[in-house]
Design a protein around this nucleic acid. Structure first.
Length: 920
RNA sequence: GGUCGCGUAGCUCAGCCGGUUAGAGCGCUGGUCUCACAUACCAGAGGUCCGGGGUUCGAGUCCCUGCGCGACCACCA
């Protein structure tokens, strides 16, 4: 039966079916027993997905990130590893809760109306019904996840891990309850970690306010500078630097706080910078982390004047501070009002524009309010130590390298992690309080019904844990921890590569490393691969709010998942951003679409021309039967395999740490892709495939040679498909399945990675002569406007006997490729009108006698000669320089000498030709 | 404010340890519907490697400096 492919590749019909077949065959399912660590014979290779928010829908960032992971995991799967890619989702505390709250708002109700239990239930239902969409979408882009291991941070299993982690840390003295100023989001009504409160440069104002001096001593006032006048109601002191001569005399005196109309002391504290503002700081311990520290040092009261919703209020210990007119006012409105009041009182000295960074909630963008409260913290310094060492000593490498500095810098200055959130959606903190006994909180792995000491009623802590408190356990919890004997943990932990965006390096990556060491004693992975960001043509990050996003599924529908993947990967320098134009998908994804089309057409040609007769394995063919083209393409294939392997690099360190030389090599996906592209397109398709056409023709004179060509063609294409599969899995699988001699049931996805075959003969090199001759012929034809399709007579002048021999043998092929009838001569034909110069001893091509414009040809050749002379001059100068000869590396000098010989010979030929052709 | 990175063809970027005539994709120009492919093929144009110093026999590559961008971190109110 003659195989035939549709003229047009239709990804839509192909991709869905192939994905289903992969899944049905269990191609993506990893088996713990096959792992070397569990007594099997395959090295395990594991990637855990950065779990997307359970409510997320696929965007380009996911597309990029997950394609990178899929390329890597497919490569390792083919390379013979027991490859596991663990998928899953994150319950995403704040984000998900916000969505459901917005729904409730639309219904005119709130979570408080609903009550905690009902709200959590409703959110869980919402997640169950609509969540996990993104996991379906990942299938559409070809992600080869092991879906039998899909995890969810709020599942019973992972929740158990979360609780175990909390208890162990508590028992180790690394979790404590702290009373301090934390970042508070007045919209989400929860505290945030330092990482969740993002700095944003803002133009604000610096207000200079006079606080009148009171009591004994000279009258007058002291001027403070503040960006947040509304917090002055919570002032408990003003501070100056003890060394500041201007204010030394005032230390210990008191000032009257305007508006609040109370007296507060002037204190001395190092924290005050004399060079900023007036050198006087108002101290508001409840609403500023620095002021809080000052307050602690000086045993000052800490009145709270802004409530949880960001409104002015006398919350605690603040009697008489907030005037009735301001009570309940939003903090920013209150600021305006207070400024007016200060103006009226004549104590506002001046207002200056001021650039400063204001922290915002990373989920809703609201300006964060520093607020005094009780929160649970993780003591980070002890956890950071091994995580820091791991990157320093090369147990873990971060790519691109520059992020290692960012990582170590953060860990060196690590601060304790606020892990409690005043939310309802998440893992409830496993702490109970006994009303009867009072005092110590009870931390427990199991839910408590009563007090273990007195049996009295207990009340669980109201707060839930930071979402990232479950995320940081992801590599261990998804593999079965805290069960230390879990088969997956044994077989697949530590994992190998972690692929993610740099923006969650601290949120997630660093903390996973800490958790890996603390809970299991081993780093969770050896490589962190940080991707770039997907941007539009104005270099703006793609985002929903800007409306400049591209829906990956649109691209899949238009051009196929492979086109999407190829486009992203081929344009992806290590750690660089990817620019795509949302307004011109056609052009943006042209590289991928064009490449898949090319592949398809190679397949069509091959299947249409190879025929149905048995195709021999390469090993069954005696080497002497290979043509120069065969030898050449096999050599190029070897080179491509080598280049791919070099670009992809070592899969894992040889030892427990990366050797210095390999630490920053590998995972160059762009270079890998480019290496195969060049082989497939520029070499296989452009030259080899063309060269086989006469050999494959049904009426080819030599049936034996036809078999050789068929065998080589199928072999080379097979290997190319293997090399390409990680990048473009669908179309390669589809084509591979159609190859002759394919046994049923096998998949390219699990076929083995190509190996370098070995040294080829000199004949491979001789094929270059064919290519050069054809190129020169085409060039001349183009220059003289001879239609490509029109066959012209041409003479190849081969100066050396060996070149003459090759040219003579290959003359039919050269003629076929260049559309010319080629004869070979030792000397330029007498009276020949034009000459072209070639390497390898083939020197002259004479197209159609009489069609040559002598003057034009002379001009061209003279230009070429002048250029060559110039280059030769430079080369000679270098070689005549004794310093170069003695100091440069021997191989470099030898290379230059070789070049000099070649160029000199070429100059000689050119000169002769110019003389012959143009006289002078 | 601290730390780091970037500036190479019209655009997006490769160019490792300094050493062939600085490359690719897209775009552009001219020509081809050549029996796998016009989503293609053939030929071609296009670069003072941001400016200025320096080290070196030799610098896109190393050092200094200026200009222009960007990222991350940050308790100067």
């Amino acid at each position: 039966m003659t195989r035939e492919l549709s003229p047009q590749y239709d990804p839509a019909t192909v991709e869905r079916a192939i994905y289903a077949r992969w899944v049905d065959a269990g191609v993506f399912t990893a088996h713990d027993a096959r792992s070397l660590r569990a007594g099997g014979d395959r090295p395990p290779f594991t990637i855990v997905i950065p779990p997307p928010n359970v409510t997320a829908v696929l965007h380009m960032g996911h597309g990029l990130n997950n394609t990178v992971q899929d390329v890597i995991i497919r490569w390792r799967r083919m390379a013979g590893d027991e490859a596991l890619w663990v998928p899953g989702t994150d319950h995403a505390g704040i984000a998900t809760q916000n969505i459901v709250e917005r729904q409730l708002a639309k219904e005119g109700t709130t979570r408080f109306d609903l009550g905690r239990e009902a709200f959590v239930e409703r959110t869980a239902r919402f997640v169950e019904e609509t969540g996990g969409v993104i996991l379906q979408q990942l299938r559409a882009i070809g992600a080869s996840c092991d879906w039998t291991r899909t995890a969810y941070t709020l599942s019973p299993e992972l929740s158990r891990a979360v609780r175990e982690a909390f208890v162990r840390l508590y028992e180790a003295g690394l979790i404590y309850k702290g009373h301090r100023v934390i970042h508070w989001c007045p919209r989400c009504l929860t505290s945030l970690s330092d990482e969740e409160a993002e700095h944003e440069d803002t133009t604000g104002a610096l207000y200079y306010i006079n606080y009148p001096l009171v009591g004994d001593g000279a009258p007058g006032s002291i001027t403070v500078a503040t960006t947040r006048p509304e917090t002055m109601l919570g002032d408990v002191a003003v501070a100056v630097n003890p060394e500041d001569e201007r204010y030394k005399a005032l230390i210990g005196r008191r000032v009257r706080l305007p508006i609040a109309d109370i007296e507060i002391p002037i204190i001395a504290d190092e924290y005050t910078d004399p060079s900023f503002g007036t050198g006087v700081v108002k101290i508001t311990p409840a609403h500023d982390p620095n002021d809080f520290e000052v307050g602690v040092r000086h045993h000052l009261p800490m009145p709270v004047v802004i409530d949880a919703e960001g409104r002015m209020a006398e919350v605690t210990d603040a009697a008489g501070r907030v005037p009735p007119v301001l009570r309940g006012a939003d903090r920013f409105e209150a600021r305006e009002q207070i400024v007016e009041m200060l103006k009226d009182a004549g104590v506002l000295a001046k207002v200056e524009q001021h650039q400063h960074a204001v922290r915002h909630c990373y989920r809703c963008g609201t300006v964060v309010e520093p607020r005094l409260s009780d929160q649970w913290f993780v003591k980070m310094a002890p956890l950071a130590k091994p995580a820091l060492d791991a990157v320093r000593d090369g147990t873990i490498r971060i790519m691109p390298e520059r992020w290692e500095a960012v990582y170590t810098n953060w860990l060196e200055n690590i601060r304790d992690w606020n892990i409690s959130r005043q939310l309802w959606w998440g893992h409830r903190i496993p702490v109970w309080y006994c009303e009867a006994c009072g005092g110590e909180p009870i931390v427990s792995r199991d839910d408590l019904a009563g007090c273990p000491t007195c049996g009295g009623p207990v009340r669980q802590d109201e707060d839930v844990l930071d979402t990232w408190f479950s995320s940081w356990l992801w590599p261990i919890s998804t593999l079965g921890w805290p069960n230390d004997c879990a088969p997956d943990l044994e077989a697949f932990y530590p994992t190998d590569v972690l692929v993610t965006a740099p923006e969650i390096l601290f949120f997630w990556v660093a903390r996973m490393i800490m958790a890996g060491y603390f809970f299991v004693g081993k780093a969770p992975f050896h490589t962190v691969y940080l991707t770039g960001v997907v941007r539009d043509m104005q270099h703006r990050k793609m985002s929903k709010s800007l409306g400049n996003g591209i829906d990956p599924l649109d691209v899949v529908q238009l051009f196929g998942a492979d086109a999407l993947r190829y486009t992203m990967i081929s344009g992806l320098g290590l750690g660089t951003d990817v620019m795509l134009d949302p307004n011109n998908l056609e052009q943006s994804f042209a590289p991928g679409r064009n490449f898949t089309t090319k592949l398809w057409n190679i397949g069509r040609f091959l299947l249409g021309n190879v025929g149905e007769a048995t195709v021999l394995p390469l090993s069954a063919i005696d080497r002497s039967r290979f043509t120069r083209a065969d030898e050449w393409v096999l050599e190029r294939l070897d080179l491509a395999i080598q280049e791919c392997n070099a670009a992809l690099g070592p899969a894992r360190p040889d030892d427990t740490t990366w050797a210095e030389w390999e630490r920053h090599t590998g995972l160059r996906l762009m270079e890998y892709t480019e290496a195969v592209r060049r082989f497939v397109w520029d070499e296989l398709a452009a030259w080899y495939l063309e060269s086989t056409k006469p050999r494959l023709a049904a009426d080819a004179p030599n049936a034996d040679d036809r078999d050789v060509a068929r065998a080589v063609l199928v072999h080379v294409f097979d290997m190319a498909l293997r090399l390409l599969h990680p990048v473009v899995p669908f179309i390669t699988e589809e084509l591979w399945q159609q190859l002759p001699e394919r046994t049923e049931g096998g998949f390219l996805a699990t076929a083995c990675w190509p190996e370098v075959h070995g040294a080829r003969s000199e004949r491979a090199h001789e094929f270059e002569l064919v290519r050069d001759a054809v190129s020169a012929l085409r060039q001349i034809k183009a220059e003289y406007n001879i239609p490509i399709g029109k066959s012209v007579p041409a003479v190849l002048v081969a100066a050396t006997s060996s070149a003459r021999a090759v040219a003579t043998e290959e003359a039919p092929l050269i003629g076929f490729l260049a559309r010319a009838s080629v004869t070979v001569a030792a000397e330029p034909p007498a009276g020949a009108a034009a000459h072209a110069l070639l390497a390898n001893g083939v020197q002259l091509i004479v197209p159609l006698a009489g069609a040559i414009d002598i003057e034009k040809e002379c001009g061209r050749l003279s230009g070429e000669l002048a250029q060559l002379e110039k280059q030769l001059a430079g080369l000679e100068q270098r070689l005549n320089n004794p310093n170069f000869v003695t100091r440069a590396k021997p191989e470099v000098v030898e290379g230059e000498r070789h070049k000099l010989r070649e160029w000199s010979a070429r100059r000689e030929q050119l000169r002769n030709k110019v003389t012959a052709l143009c006289g002078a």
